[in-house]
Amino acid sequence: MTLLALSGVTVRRAGRAVVQDAALTVAPGEVVGLIGPNAAGKSTLLRAALGLIAAEGSIRLGREEIARLSPPARARRAAFLPQGREIAWPVSVRALVGLAARDGAAVDRALAATGTSALADRPATSLSGGEQALVLLARALAQEAPLLVADEPLAGLDPAHQLAALGIFRARAAAGQGVLLALHELGLAARHCDRVALIHRGRILAAGAPAEVITAARLAEVYGIEAEIIPHPAGMIVLPRRRARP
């Protein structure tokens, strides 16, 4: 059974289709990466997948069409880590992580999984950007939903915090849950996702194993760059060399 299944999903904004006829699935045990240039429709597709904006087509969370699920029922099936790291009030880390948690034990588990237990009593607004990112990730984990959707969870993080977050995503997949990430860093997507989907101008151009999707020819077409794809024992390295001549 898939945790998330999109087919024929179209999102219109002011009459223009910003996502068109998209299909995407996330199964238990896998980390799926959504890649594509700025304004390609990554965030829009994620928000549509969670029912946060209106969309045409079929969106299923588990077995149910999302339109038939109430907001609390959606929250039990999927947790979301949005792109902006907005924390409006100086609430304690523990209170923040517990916002959608079933009980204190879930909060403790999420704090432990993200290595933020020591921050529990600090005001969340007083943390560094990297710490805030991990705490907000802990907040989504504490929801203990089978699917985690994260929009640019690695943006602005140093390599240590990036690896910490990626390790958490991998651990969740290993525990039989599903993870869907929008990512900009192609090398990270290639090395840390089981499958990737490449979205360009609202359409999913290719989806599958990273080595099949991330090719020099596609990067030239989609990003307008000349890039070298370097094989490496730990996965592939994507090295953008220069912007392609028009």
Binding site: L50, R74, P82, A88, L136, R139
Partner: peptide, 17 residues
């Protein structure tokens, strides 16, 4: 309103109507 501390998208994804 607690959930809104993290913005509208986050709050909606936590089940807030």
């Amino acid at each position: 309103l607690d959930a809104l501390t993290l913005g509208e998208d986050a709050a909606a994804s936590m089940g807030v109507r």
